[in-house]
Design a binder for these strands. Structure first.
Length: 646
RNA sequence: GCCGGGGUAGCUCAGGGGCAGAGCGCUUCCUUGGUAAGGAAGAGGUCACGAGUUCAAUUCUCGUCCUCGGCUCCA
């Protein structure tokens, strides 16, 4: 007999060899129907795998992340089975589950495949799923495994098996399809009720661009049709929020072929919005002891020799600018740090001055690969909300705290309420790839971990993810429809202080090297605005939005009164416009709603007589009549509340 | 950079070897109104750019640029 500990800490005894499925059935038939896989002593296993020793057991269903993963991985097998039946002779690469669904990389040989074929494959998958095919696991000796795929003529699987140890190889068979697979899988195909193939794309075998490109088909499955519909609705919603579409509709930014790929042009409304963001951050930074600096857009090639960037990125970036002077070369700056180091070096510093914080909205240029460019999230010219903090090793911790204060204020002011933090530290088994002393790294990493703990940040620590020059902390936000975006970053740097020979005189009258901290709460203005647009679907917070108020006179007779109201708003720094067209009120309201202007003020005879405005809130409807002064106070209060959140 | 879609009016898109199309938007006129589309008329195009095939190319072929979905990359 073995002891099985369930999540509620109750312990049950079973015969050795019992399966998770049997235990589930023992608890309730309903649970057994929903079990997809099981976590046995912390490892996710097939629900039908015999358990032969004492174990903690957690039964996983569609509600669990690992349950979904198993379902989608099994769906990848199901898709492969359908494709093998429809296109005999195709060869298979790998087919894992991913965050949303699964894919399979397939060499279709002579078959042409496109989205037009999805319908046929989906139908076949649904048909096979209804057969309630079981996923049967089998351990296979290496030579047998090779023999199987040799006969099948699948060189991709053969290559995968070559890399595996004899004894570690398992096959899963479902219906007519057998695949090399570690598992785990769901018990049978019956939970796969709704199937949708999403897109087809090319992907190199093993991610190597020198090797053959396979066809990758992405798909997703659900246990209920309704859930699939909801998912597809979410995708539609995401499409509507696409910042490239909203950016055009709301006249925020554009691109021009004539100017060049990946070089955004900010339109007046977009520039206004961006400037407001910059002003806001500048104010926070001024209060936190930062000093603004301004540096040129280019730097002499020698600057980048010193920084080391030339050797690493020179060929893959924008090429140098030549001058009439033979041999003189300048580079567009790909980052602001070297310039800021030179500012630091402009005169000697005492320890009493530290920390020194230089801030600059610095525009930089990086030659990103053409296929990587995407709207405002990935561009070739962008502005970082950059700052560099020069401090002593002891000051790392308070400086991190100060930066996090700023980042948290910003996220709150912009309604990003779910924030995750990733702390990237060095790989303890691979010390030699990092620059800087072991003691300094330990000190900095300790400081970062402590800060995260003391502040109760929702943080994960990743060892080996640090840059060669220092550990870092990255901030991820979840947007309104559940997608995660990486925004702010704080990075410790031991490299540039060394390369630029940065120093300060300590209390011991000796020279010491300061630590440099790079930080950008937004990341870049471009990327941040893109994420913000998609987060709020273009409905910007009142304090930030280009036009806060639109005045809608009922008819041209009230144009003068509308102008009077507008002037009053202007005096209180409220941004507004008048829709003076000879259209009906219904029409003006509709257009203002589509332009996502937060407040609509309808004014006619009644309002003119009373000195009032009829207020309509975007997306919410009629709020009734307000004394104009009261309305102004309401707007002021709403703006204050957003900006001054603690 | 690589693979695969695509580029026709400001936007969304239809069309197709021989007169360039629709809806929305825009302009003008009529209408002067009360919480999501009032009516009429009009303007607007080198069919991305360059070459080739053809009596004739927006349409077919090739190249370039741009764009979209992936892959790779990301100081």
């Amino acid at each position: 007999m073995i002891n099985i500990t369930l999540p509620d800490n109750s312990v049950k005894q079973y015969e050795s060899g019992v399966t998770a499925m049997q235990i589930a059935r023992d608890i309730s038939e309903g649970l057994a129907r929903n079990v997809l896989v099981a976590k046995v002593n912390g490892d996710v296993k097939d629900a039908l795998m015999p358990i032969t020793e004492d174990a903690t057991l957690q039964l996983l269903t569609w509600r669990d992340k690992d349950g979904k993963a198993a379902m989608w991985h099994s769906s990848a097998h199901l898709m492969a089975e359908a494709i093998e039946l429809l296109y005999p002779g195709v060869k298979f690469g790998i087919g894992p589950d991913i965050e949303n669904g699964f894919y399979y990389d397939i060499d279709f040989m002579d078959h042409e495949i496109s989205e037009k074929d999805f319908d046929k494959i989906e139908k076949k998958m649904t048909e096979l799923a209804r057969e309630k095919q079981t996923f049967d696991r089998k351990e296979v000796p290496k030579n047998e495994a090779l023999e199987y795929f040799n006969q099948k003529g699948d060189e991709y699987k053969l290559e995968l098996i070559e890399d595996l140890q004899d004894g570690d190889i398992t096959f899963y068979t479902s219906g007519y399809f057998t695949d090399l697979c570690r598992g785990p899988h769901i018990p049978d195909t019956s939970p796969i009720k709704a199937v949708k193939l999403l897109k087809v794309a090319g992907a190199y075998w093993r991610g190597d661009e020198k090797r053959k490109q396979l066809t990758r088909i992405y798909g997703i499955t659900f246990p209920k049709k309704k859930e699939l519909d909801e998912y597809l609705h979410m995708l539609e919603e995401a499409k509507k929020r696409d910042h490239r579409v909203l950016g055009r509709e709301l006249e925020l930014f554009t691109f021009s072929q004539a100017v060049g790929q990946g070089l955004p042009l900010w339109l007046p409304k977009g520039a206004q919005l961006r400037e407001r963001l910059e002003q806001y951050l500048k104010r926070l930074q001024r209060d936190a002891g930062y000093e603004q600096v301004i540096t040129p857009h280019i730097g002499n090639v020698n600057l980048y020799k010193t920084s080391g960037h030339l050797a690493k990125y020179g060929k893959e970036s924008f090429q140098p600018i030549n001058t009439p002077v033979e041999g003189e070369q300048f580079f567009l700056k790909p980052m602001n740090c070297p310039h800021h180091c030179e500012i630091y070096n402009a005169r000697p510093h005492s320890y009493k001055e530290l920390p020194i914080r230089f801030a600059e909205f610095g525009t930089v240029y990086r030659y990103e690969q053409s296929g990587e460019l995407h709207g405002l999230t990935r561009v070739r010219g962008f502005t970082q909300d950059d700052a560099h903090i020069f401090c002593t090793p002891e000051q790392i911790k308070p400086e991190f705290n100060g930066v996090i204060d700023i980042i948290e204020r910003i996220f709150k002011a912009l309604d990003f309420n779910e924030v995750k933090v990733q702390i990237s530290l060095s790989d303890p088994d691979n010390r030699e790839k990092y620059i800087g002393s072991v003691e300094n790294w330990a000190k900095a990493e300790q400081a970062i971990i402590e800060v995260a703990e003391e502040r109760g940040l929702n943080a994960v620590i990743e060892y080996g993810e640090a840059a060669f020059y220092g550990p870092k902390m990255d901030f991820m936000v979840r947007d309104a429809i559940g997608r995660e975006w990486q925004l702010g970053t704080i990075q410790v740097d031991y490299n540039l202080p060394e390369r630029f020979k940065l120093e300060y005189i300590g209390s011991d009258n000796e020279k010491h090297q300061p630590v440099m901290i790079h930080r950008a709460p937004f990341g870049s203005m471009e990327r941040f605005v893109a994420v913000l647009i998609e987060h709020c679907a273009g409905n910007f917070p009142l304090w930030l939005t280009p036009e806060q108020v639109i005045i809608l006179p009922i008819s041209e007779k009230y144009q003068t009164y509308a102008e009077k109201v507008l002037n009053l708003l202007k005096k209180h720094d409220i941004r507004g416009i008048i829709d003076g067209r000879s259209e009906k009120t219904g029409r003006k309201i509709r257009d203002a709603e589509l332009k996502k202007i937060p407040y609509m003020l309808i004014v006619g005879e009644r309002e003119e007589n009373e000195g009032s405005v009829s207020v309509r809130r975007h997306g919410k409807g009629d709020m009734g009549s307000f004394n104009t002064e009261d309305f102004i106070r309401m707007v002021d209060d709403e703006v204050e509340e957003m900006i001054n959140v603690k």
